[in-house]
Lab assay of single mutants.
Amino acid sequence: MTEYKLVVVGAGGVGKSALTIQLIQNHFVDEYDPTIEDSYRKQVVIDGETCLLDILDTAGQEEYSAMRDQYMRTGEGFLCVFAINNTKSFEDIHHYREQIKRVKDSEDVPMVLVGNKCDLPSRTVDTKQAQDLARSYGIPFIETSAKTRQGVDDAFYTLVREIRKHKEKMSKDGKKKKKKSKTKCVIM
């Protein structure tokens, strides 16, 4: 069974824990209790493949930012979460993405942009803004509501699919490099 290491990042209060708990335990946590770091595991079937999701729910508070490099190193894919009623959390996505790329030393890291709290009427981040940002990053965008469960499975499952595509691409690139290195030079 394939294991996928997913990391949920975003500013404090955007609903990272609520999304994760909704996926794992099928219930909505409405009281806000700032996370330092929590880890969850769940076995699911995605596109006919049974897999184990190892999900790291991270601290959004700035005082825990020193811990970010460590979990970013171990993560295979990242859910970059903002709240649709919090423009600052949307603007912060850029910083999370840049930090992930720096730590992973790669421009090509599996990510999904997630606009959470889409059940709320007080939207300050337009869907088109988020779609445009995701398009500019070359990553999928999904709106979710941890409260109603809308888009929750889709967000995590899409990230797994992005990781699969990335692994497939990397193995193809690896095979191309191996083929090239088999060419021999004969000096007579």
Rank of each mutant, 00 (worst) to 15 (best):
D30Q: 14
G12V: 07
G48Q: 10
V9L: 10
A59P: 02
G10R: 01
V7M: 07
E31I: 12
E63T: 07
T20M: 07
G60A: 01
D54Q: 07
D57R: 00
Y64H: 01
V29H: 11
K5Y: 02
Y4Q: 14
Q43H: 12
E37R: 00
C51K: 13
D30T: 13
L56Q: 05
Q22N: 14
L53T: 11
Y32F: 05
D47T: 08
S39F: 04
T35A: 00
E3F: 07
V29F: 09
T35V: 02
V7A: 09
I21A: 15
P34F: 10
D47R: 07
D57C: 03
V29A: 12
F28S: 05
E49N: 12
R41M: 12
G10T: 00
V7G: 04
D38K: 01
E63G: 06
E37P: 02
T35G: 02
T35M: 00
T50H: 12
F28I: 06
T20K: 03
C51E: 11
D33R: 02
D33A: 03
G12A: 13
V44E: 12
T58P: 03
L23M: 13
D30N: 11
I46K: 12
D54Y: 05
G60M: 00
G13T: 10
I36F: 06
L23P: 03
I46N: 13
Y4T: 11
D33C: 03
H27T: 14
V7R: 12
N26P: 07
E63P: 05
A18L: 02
I55F: 08
Y32M: 05
G60V: 01
K5P: 10
G13A: 11
Q61Y: 05
G15Q: 02
I46Q: 11
Q43P: 12
R41H: 13
T58A: 06
G15A: 01
D38Y: 03
D57L: 02
E3S: 10
T50A: 11
V44F: 08
T50P: 15
I21F: 14
E49Y: 07
E37G: 01
Q25I: 06
V45S: 14
G13E: 14
I46H: 10
E31A: 10
G12M: 10
D30R: 13
L53H: 07
D54S: 08
I46R: 10
L53D: 04
V8A: 06
N26W: 06
E3G: 11
V9T: 05
H27P: 05
G48R: 09
L56T: 14
H27M: 15
L52A: 15
A18I: 06
G48Y: 07
Q22D: 15
E3L: 08
D54I: 03
V14K: 07
V14M: 11
D47E: 11
Y32E: 06
I24P: 02
E49P: 08
Y32G: 04
V45Y: 09
D30G: 11
E62M: 06
I36T: 05
V45I: 12
D30Y: 09
E31T: 08
I36Q: 03
E31Y: 15
I36H: 00
Q22M: 05
Q22C: 05
V45L: 12
V8C: 08
A18R: 05
D30A: 11
G60W: 00
A11C: 12
T2I: 08
V7C: 13
E63F: 05
E49G: 08
I46P: 09
S17T: 13
G10P: 00
D30K: 13
Y32T: 05
L19A: 15
H27C: 14
S17P: 00
D38C: 05
V44M: 13
I36E: 04
D30I: 09
I21G: 15
V44A: 13
L19I: 11
E49T: 11
E62Y: 05
E63Q: 09
L53K: 06
I46E: 13
E62C: 06
V44W: 08
